[in-house]
């Protein structure tokens, strides 16, 4: 069967700090947000993983339009660990037990997909996978399956990982438009390059 899907476009950015510094990441993402020049006060309420997803999809949307059935197929290594640690700190000491609902709600990796869905009004398929490293074959096959069965007409698929020492984001827009064929090799190549 002829492959009729393409990696229409993608965004990719990463940061690796020398030591754990969540505050530095926080400050930096705030700058990135300002640079986008969009008004979205909810951004400031998001956890870091959601902020990364927000920024990535804002950048991606400058290049492509997302149909409302654009699937979100994400994967990462650390799940929501940075926020998990924050929540754990709020309950670790018995005499300072003040869990925060606005932190707890972000202790799931798929919340970033929810934030993106709200921002771009995507009533669509969502799946969040966890693995040590980016599994291009899984992301390719799973996305392809959704497109082939018409459960989505396009997909934002890729890797969005955050730990206390940095982050790595690679989100590709897959659709019937483009020139770079949507294959495992091309996806892996764009991720690594």
């Amino acid at each position: 069967m002829k492959n009729k899907y393409f990696i229409t476009d993608f965004v990719k950015f990463s940061k690796q700090l020398k030591t754990a510094d969540v505050d530095a990441i926080q400050t930096e993402l705030k700058e990135e947000y300002k640079a986008l020049a969009v008004q979205y006060p909810k951004f400031h309420k998001m956890d870091l993983l959601s902020k990364l997803g927000f920024i990535a999809t804002e950048l991606l949307q400058k290049k492509v339009n997302f149909p409302s059935d654009t699937a979100l197929i994400f994967q990462n290594n650390a799940s929501s660990l940075v926020t998990d640690i924050q929540h754990q700190k709020s309950i670790q000491e018995k005499d300072a037990y003040f869990p925060s609902p606005s932190i707890f709600v972000y202790t799931l990796p798929n919340i970033v997909m929810g934030e993106i869905a709200i921002r771009h009004q995507l009533q669509s398929e969502n799946t969040f996978f966890i693995s040590e490293n980016f599994q291009a074959d899984l992301i390719k096959n799973y996305t392809q399956s959704l497109l082939d069965t018409k459960k989505a007409s396009a997909s934002i698929s890729g890797w969005i990982d955050l730990n206390t020492e940095g982050y790595n984001v690679f989100l590709a827009f897959i659709s019937e438009k483009g020139t770079l064929p949507f294959t495992t090799e091309n996806l892996q190549h764009k991720f690594t390059a």
Partner: peptide
């Protein structure tokens, strides 16, 4: 101000804390 349901829950925590 535009607060939402999670903010309301957060205010409950603020009151107690």
């Amino acid at each position: 101000i535009g607060l939402d349901s999670i903010d309301a829950l957060e205010l409950i925590v603020l009151l107690e804390k």
